Measured scan of single mutants.
Amino acid sequence: MLYRITVRNADGEKLEIVVEMSEDEVRALAEELRKAGYEVRVEPIPEGEEP
Rank of each mutant, 00 (worst) to 15 (best):
M1N: 11
M1Q: 14
L2W: 08
L2T: 06
L2S: 06
Y3G: 01
Y3N: 02
Y3S: 01
Y3L: 03
R4K: 06
R4W: 06
R4L: 11
T6I: 08
T6Y: 11
T6C: 04
T6D: 02
T6F: 14
T6S: 05
T6P: 00
V7K: 01
V7I: 09
V7D: 00
V7G: 09
V7T: 06
R8Y: 11
R8V: 12
R8P: 01
R8C: 05
N9K: 15
N9W: 09
N9H: 11
N9E: 03
N9G: 10
A10S: 10
D11K: 15
G12H: 04
G12F: 04
E13V: 15
E13I: 15
E13C: 09
E13H: 15
E13Q: 13
L15W: 07
L15Y: 15
L15E: 05
E16H: 06
E16A: 09
E16I: 09
E16K: 05
I17D: 01
V18D: 04
V18N: 03
V18S: 03
V18G: 01
V18R: 05
V19W: 02
V19S: 02
V19P: 00
V19I: 08
E20G: 05
E20V: 14
E20D: 05
E20M: 15
E20I: 10
M21K: 03
M21T: 03
M21R: 03
S22R: 07
E23R: 04
E23I: 07
D24T: 12
D24E: 12
E25F: 12
E25R: 06
E25K: 07
V26Y: 01
V26S: 02
R27A: 07
R27C: 12
A28C: 02
A28H: 13
A28D: 07
A28M: 10
L29S: 01
L29T: 04
A30C: 05
A30L: 09
A30H: 02
A30R: 03
A30V: 14
E31A: 07
E31Y: 05
E31W: 10
E32S: 12
L33I: 06
L33Q: 01
R34D: 02
R34M: 07
R34W: 04
R34Q: 09
R34A: 06
R34I: 04
K35P: 00
K35V: 04
K35H: 06
A36N: 13
A36I: 06
G37L: 01
G37Q: 01
G37C: 02
G37W: 10
G37A: 02
Y38S: 03
Y38E: 01
Y38D: 02
Y38N: 05
E39Q: 08
E39T: 12
E39I: 08
V40A: 02
V40I: 06
V40T: 02
V40D: 00
V40C: 02
R41K: 13
R41W: 06
V42G: 01
V42R: 00
V42N: 00
V42Q: 01
E43A: 10
E43Q: 09
E43Y: 11
I45R: 03
I45N: 06
P46M: 11
P46A: 12
P46R: 10
P46W: 10
P46I: 15
P46V: 12
P46C: 07
E47V: 15
E47P: 14
G48L: 15
E49N: 13
E49M: 13
E49V: 12
E49T: 08
E50K: 15
E50C: 10
E50Y: 14
E50R: 11
E50H: 14
E50W: 11
P51N: 09
P51F: 00
P51K: 07
P51A: 07
P51R: 05
